[in-house]
Simulated assay, not measured.
Amino acid sequence: MQSVQSLSDSFAALGDPTRLAILGRLASEGDLTVQEIARPFAMSLPAVSQHLKVLERAGLIARGRDGQKRPCRLNAERLAETARWFDHTRAAWDARLDRLERFLAETPRPTLSKGDDNEP
């Protein structure tokens, strides 16, 4: 399971729509250069580079070297670790809600006497 700090870094990185879009493109298109990543965004290359640095620090992408190019690639394992945290947390909450539902179903409800239904 990811450490609290790495989870926090991942969620901070995922909390930005531009970074989510970048990850989506890397997932669907494979490795891309900074120029290719920047193409659909109405922002400067340095601004895109800042987003990439956040993603890289969070471990969600890695940058390689291919001659003069520095392609970025999705680190699917880090994304999968974050998804496992969500799955674990969802399962815990589902179990809690199931227990609450059983408790409420088994607990007798008080009956209201005539005229009590309008009282707070």
Rank of each mutant, 00 (worst) to 15 (best):
2 Q>I: 14
6 S>G: 03
6 S>M: 10
7 L>H: 00
9 D>C: 06
9 D>H: 07
10 S>A: 15
10 S>L: 09
11 F>I: 14
11 F>A: 13
12 A>H: 07
12 A>G: 09
13 A>K: 04
14 L>H: 07
15 G>S: 05
16 D>L: 05
16 D>Y: 02
16 D>E: 11
19 R>P: 02
21 A>G: 13
21 A>I: 02
24 G>I: 07
25 R>F: 01
27 A>I: 07
29 E>Q: 15
29 E>H: 14
30 G>V: 08
30 G>L: 10
31 D>Q: 15
31 D>M: 01
31 D>P: 14
32 L>W: 04
32 L>N: 09
34 V>N: 07
35 Q>I: 03
36 E>A: 05
36 E>N: 03
37 I>M: 11
39 R>V: 01
41 F>P: 06
42 A>Q: 12
43 M>E: 06
43 M>P: 02
43 M>L: 02
44 S>Y: 10
46 P>R: 09
46 P>L: 00
47 A>V: 03
47 A>C: 04
50 Q>A: 14
52 L>P: 09
53 K>G: 02
53 K>I: 09
53 K>Y: 10
55 L>W: 05
57 R>Q: 14
59 G>Y: 01
62 A>G: 14
63 R>K: 04
63 R>L: 02
65 R>S: 09
67 G>H: 01
67 G>L: 04
67 G>R: 11
67 G>N: 00
69 K>P: 00
69 K>R: 15
70 R>G: 00
71 P>W: 03
72 C>S: 05
74 L>P: 12
75 N>Y: 10
75 N>V: 07
76 A>R: 11
76 A>W: 04
77 E>M: 13
79 L>Y: 02
80 A>I: 10
83 A>C: 09
83 A>H: 00
84 R>K: 03
84 R>Y: 07
85 W>M: 04
86 F>T: 05
87 D>C: 04
88 H>D: 15
89 T>K: 13
91 A>V: 01
91 A>Y: 08
92 A>D: 09
94 D>Q: 14
95 A>P: 06
96 R>H: 08
96 R>M: 12
97 L>Y: 01
99 R>D: 14
100 L>V: 05
100 L>K: 05
101 E>L: 06
104 L>G: 13
105 A>M: 08
107 T>I: 08
107 T>R: 12
110 P>A: 02
110 P>D: 04
111 T>K: 15
111 T>V: 14
112 L>E: 13
112 L>M: 14
113 S>Y: 13
114 K>F: 12
114 K>P: 05
114 K>E: 13
115 G>D: 07
117 D>V: 03
117 D>M: 11
118 N>G: 15
119 E>G: 01
120 P>T: 09
